[in-house]
Design a binder for these strands. Structure first.
Lengths: 190, 190, 190, 190
DNA sequence: TATGAATGAGCCTTCATTCAT
DNA sequence: AATGAATGAAGGCTCATTCAT
């Protein structure tokens, strides 16, 4: 049945797209992406119907990875603080390990090219871990502020912390990670 | 009899640019901006040498306004908490009053088109108010964390708070503003 | 164990090509034709070396069918008028029965992609019937005008008549067919 | 008020388009048209918003010219036959003088890119001359066949006649023109 | 100075054809 | 023989910038 679509190529395209979008924004041309991925211009379109399709799939790819990281790492046991702390460490580690993806996410979120459908799917990916976080925070925070603390602040603050780390010498990293967590934990206490 | 550049036109162009960039990103065409400003395509280039120039001036225009707002509002007297609280309220009010500018800032910051020079100037604009904040926070926070709390977190958290407010019914606004401030104040306490 | 080319597939491709070319012109993509024919994109090229080859074969397929219709129907006996009239009826019936093919022929003729060779073969297909028509018209027309009346006008006028019929309510069809024939017969009389 | 749109350039583009479309069909690229017209690729789009727009304007340009030719030439006096004959001569002369336009018209009509609006405008252009023809033919033809004779056959037959002329040596031209007219006049007689 | 036509590089996408499977 | 992924040359159109008026 002819040559099958190569998962390898698909990922090469997504990786090339990530690299270029992190650098030049979503304006990066499909031609440059194809070239960086080592395929012909036309080939990109056998893997992704349109550029928007590529952008949305890239978005979901990254969100999936992040969601999996959060889930995989969530501790089943321990006190609230320890569990959230562990999650926090994971979040920071993920961001530090994936600077390109962070930049891409920022570009995509601001691009106006991520569809409502993609956002819905992304939310679904985080549903489970979000619920675990909510349980862990239950006794610690004012219930009325729960959504704000989890849906808005948690990842946003982690993001800011990683930014600060990226702009600082390595020896300060641990210190900043602690400062970020303290801010979150103390700040959210009822 | 060289007619002088009209400040009125310059501002019309900046305003039109803000509106369109908020909506469509920095990809908004100079032609569309000129049209929205009510001037000819070519006229835009007698006020701004290049599109990047326009973008950078717009960036500084907005940052200047925000910096002035912060300075103008800073209370000379009162306890630390009250002064920071007042600043916080100002920040939130500015964001709520200028949703377009907030969107533009976000677009410009990820666009990769704001020069190092512009960023430096922007920092300079905030120097004075930053110092006042530092004084107010002096006894309250661990000095080693001062820069993180002021340079990274303060505006970032205000931004997130405004986002959350924008996504909520009006009757929750006050509550969110309070939640944001509590988070900041309690979280930064030594 | 070379599988022989399947006549069935060849015709499926030609039929699909006819359908799509009638609708979208010769710009119809080979991919869309293959899909409509239920074969793979590449398969089309094992049956037709190039798109132009497909177009030319389609042209000849239709011309062959029309020529056969004309020959098969030509009455051996009867007066000139009756024989031409019978032919006329055949022509009209063929056109009414094969609207897609008529559209395709029109597209192909203006496409500039039908080779001189194909046109020559097409002429050859009509040679015999053309001679019969010439014999039937012999006493009726000025010999110097014979070629014009047969080679240019006959099919052209039939074409126009079918167009007019297609644009009219059914009850007028017979009337138009008669009008067309009258025009031809009376108009060509010496 | 800056450089005004140049009617000269507009017509150069239309002329270049006509030349290329006559030769290669509506598939002629906008790049090749611009080049042939001696303007930059982008310039074409300041005169015609889209390629379809160019095609439709070209269509109307040609139809307008033909309609004007017919009107300008229509004799106010004389018998029916003489008036139709005069019109016939005009039609043939126009076709012989404008072989490129005839080819273009054929291409455009078959292209599926002429809008309903353009066809409606085209009809409007011919309304007046059509009425004059109808008056001239009034006593000569069966009223029920009037529309068929005027709207379908007249121009179609002239077209065919010009084709035959174009394919014949010059000394036969007059003869063919006569043969075409005879066919029309005698054929339409009641 | 203000205008908007002119420019041509660049963008996303399509397509006939080839070739690995 | 059949399949459909791979290819890269176009194609239509947009856009920042220049320049004649």
């Amino acid at each position: 049945m002819a040559r099958p679509l190569s998962e390898e190529k698909r990922e090469a395209i997504l990786a090339a797209a990530a690299e270029l979008i992190a650098t030049s924004g979503t304006g990066a041309s499909t031609a440059s992406i194809a070239k960086a991925a080592g395929v012909a211009e036309g080939t990109l379109f056998t893997y992704f119907a349109t550029k928007d399709d590529l952008l949305n799939q890239l978005f979901l790819e990254i969100e999936t990875n992040l969601a999996q990281t959060m889930m995989a790492a969530y501790p089943a046991k321990g006190g609230s603080r320890e569990r959230i702390r562990h999650l926090w460490d994971r979040l920071i580690a993920w961001g530090a390990a994936n600077p390109t993806w962070r930049k891409v996410l920022r570009q995509l979120k601001v691009s106006g090219r991520i569809t409502a459908e993609s956002r819905r799917r992304s939310n679904a990916l985080f549903r489970e871990s979000r619920e675990l976080v909510e349980q862990s925070m239950a006794g610690h925070v004012d219930p009325e502020r729960m959504s704000f603390y989890i849906d808005t602040v948690l990842i946003g603050l982690a993001d800011m912390t990683i930014d600060a780390m990226a702009a600082s010498p390595k020896k300060q990293h641990e210190h900043l990670k602690q400062a970020g967590f303290d801010l979150y934990w103390k700040g959210t206490a009822v």
